[in-house]
């Protein structure tokens, strides 16, 4: 490994998503973003971010077209560090109701549903995340701190052991999902001020800590 690779963070580019903001957050924390739609490069990366904006079914489709589905499955299976944002969280579930019923990756069982009526949709703005575990992703972040959300659908995992944070927006939704070294947030940490950047810092620290384990295993 080249020494210059050590600060690289690979951001998956699938033709949508707020890549710029995610890349800017990574730069702010002293890392170097590598934006790529090449599955081999993602597979070879140390630390991966899956950004998300738009519809889950479209995102699943775009990722499949790129040959990225198998890569994402493998990253999760091998417990490699992956941060998934917004729709990036939603695609991890079994299926989505958005635009009809569409299968997603099924990495975490459960369904992506439309937010309930009787309130403004999209759920847009700053809302509190209730921490359901004392996971290190929350280090330095008080319980019920506010993060920025912008979405009309939400993840409802049937495996609640993966739910690390919840948010009340008409329904109590899963706002942080964790499975081994997959950390997924329904909110946009790159748009959530200091605490959002703190999520990135915590994720990157966890990712760094997981590296030696990975090398010995290989």
């Amino acid at each position: 490994m080249k020494s210059s690779d050590r600060r690289e963070i690979t951001i998956i580019d699938y033709g949508a998503g707020n890549l710029r903001s995610v890349a800017n957050a990574v730069i702010k924390l002293g890392y170097e973003p590598v934006v790529t739609g090449n599955p081999d490069k993602v597979l070879a990366a140390r630390i991966v971010i899956l950004p998300g904006v738009g519809a889950a079914a479209d995102t699943v489709h775009s990722l499949r077209e790129l040959g990225m589905e198998a890569v994402i499955r493998r990253l999760v299976r091998e417990k490699r560090p992956l941060l998934a944002i917004c729709v990036g969280l939603q695609v991890m579930l079994s299926e989505t109701e958005e635009g009809g019923r569409h299968p997603c990756f099924g990495i975490v069982p459960g369904r992506v549903k439309r937010l309930p009526e009787g309130q403004k949709v999209p759920h847009m703005g700053w809302n509190q995340v209730k921490q359901r575990t004392s996971h290190p992703i929350f280090q330095g972040i008080p319980d019920e701190a506010n993060f920025y959300f912008a979405h009309s659908y939400y993840a409802d995992p049937s495996d609640t052991s993966a739910v690390a944070g919840t948010t009340d927006c008409g329904a109590s939704i899963c706002s942080v999902l964790i499975k081994d070294n997959l950390v997924a947030t329904q909110f946009h940490p790159e748009k959530s001020g200091d605490y959002g950047l703190r999520i990135y810092t915590n994720f990157l620290r966890l990712a760094e800590q997981s590296q030696p384990e990975r090398r010995t295993r290989q």
Partner: peptide, 11 residues
């Protein structure tokens, strides 16, 4: 917008 998004982490 480019310069702003480099340092301002809100929408």
């Amino acid at each position: 917008v480019e310069r702003c998004s480099e340092q301002v982490f809100i929408p």
